[in-house]
Amino acid sequence: MKTIVLLSEANDPISGRPHLSRLEAQAIGLAANLDKTPQGLHVGPSEEGASAALGHGLSGLDVVETSVGEDPLPAIAGFLKNALNGNEPPALFLCGRRGEGGLETGIVPYLLAEALDLPILADAVAIRPGEVQGTLVVDQAMAKGARRRVTVRLPVIATVHALAPPPQPFAYGRMRRGELRRHRADMIPAAATSAESTTPVVGSHEERPHRARPKLMRTSGTSAGSHNLHVGPEPDEAARLILAYLEENGIRRYGND
């Protein structure tokens, strides 16, 4: 099963240097169980951190060079659309579950799923091929150690949870042998993506001083009851319902202001 691991532009939490996100290294480990030659894709100004993925077991890495601060989503979507229309289409796309770079939002997998019109499965900890051809059985990590087994039809995007098996150790020789293919961004036909994702929002957020918040663990459960399942509510209504839920459970206690 051809698998592509998407590699973000993560920074080391200690030194701040570009490095390979551990989640993505774990994703490579999961991919290696399904595909003897898992491939990687990185879109960004440099592959300095992502190239370590070859040392963790990727056999090839495509790097699409974009300029600093540019939204990588159109290039990712364009590249993958090309691949899906190719003669050996990939069946599984794996990503980390969160952004680990400076301004990364971690929302790329979801926007990508939307752009490619693929299903997305969050927080995979184990993946194996399904009994029926063209399906995949994924174990999802839930809160409080719960696991949920899901069978999905391929192709699919899945994000990987930190509780997945630890990554294969890095091997310098493997990184040296791995194939790094560079592409120029203008050679990739950009796929249409929703407008709001193409303009990165920088510095428009509001800063608030830290304050102690009640522990979420106290009352929140692992799964939502059916009584608060609302299908397609109006945004205002949805916001009101969420706030009401949070206050009911003692998670938010700040009144209606």
């Binding site: 200690i14 890095f170 091997a171 020789g173």
Partner: peptide, 26 residues
């Protein structure tokens, strides 16, 4: 270590820290 990556899992930890922040203790 360098060709197979066949190093005990616990020993990979300081090496990963070395790559990340030049210091085995992280």
């Amino acid at each position: 270590t360098m060709e197979l990556g066949a190093i005990p899992m616990k020993a990979e930890e300081p090496l990963a820290h070395y790559r990340g922040c030049d210091e085995p203790s992280g």
